[in-house]
Amino acid sequence: MISDNLILERGVSAGDAWIAVAPENVHMALGALKEEGYRLLVFLTCVDHLADSSGQFPARFEVVYELRNMETRELIRVRAFIDGDPPRIDSVHDLFPPANWDERETFDMFGVVFAGHPDLTRILMPDDWVGHPLRRDFPVGGEVVEFSEEHETWQTAPEKA
């Protein structure tokens, strides 16, 4: 089992087991989990907790790794909270090859910098795009829906941060 000193916190959310690790230990923790049999990185993503009312999150960005053990059919979610501008965390593409594109996508969408990634460039947005669309402070954008009279318009922008 992954040594307890790596784990900051553990819990179960809606039936899914999760552990929280310090961002600097992510590579080590994931390596240990891989040794344990969690060989498949199901997905890697980020959650922006900007303006979360509960205030239970230690940092703005939460990087989430979902791992699966294909023998025991167990899932485990690893979370790491990071802050900073830009937020930084170690890349795990050498442990889990599929993380390559996932990390690029997370960089593209949230601006999280994955240290050690071989080719950390935008993957979904055009190369000259400014901003990271999935951050909560990035406006949804779009246009006013056309009607024959100028009345109400559809507002998609989130509540002000």
Partner: peptide, 8 residues
């Protein structure tokens, strides 16, 4: 090129 395929 440096990518997924290159790591194997």
């Amino acid at each position: 090129s440096a990518g997924v395929g290159g790591n194997l």
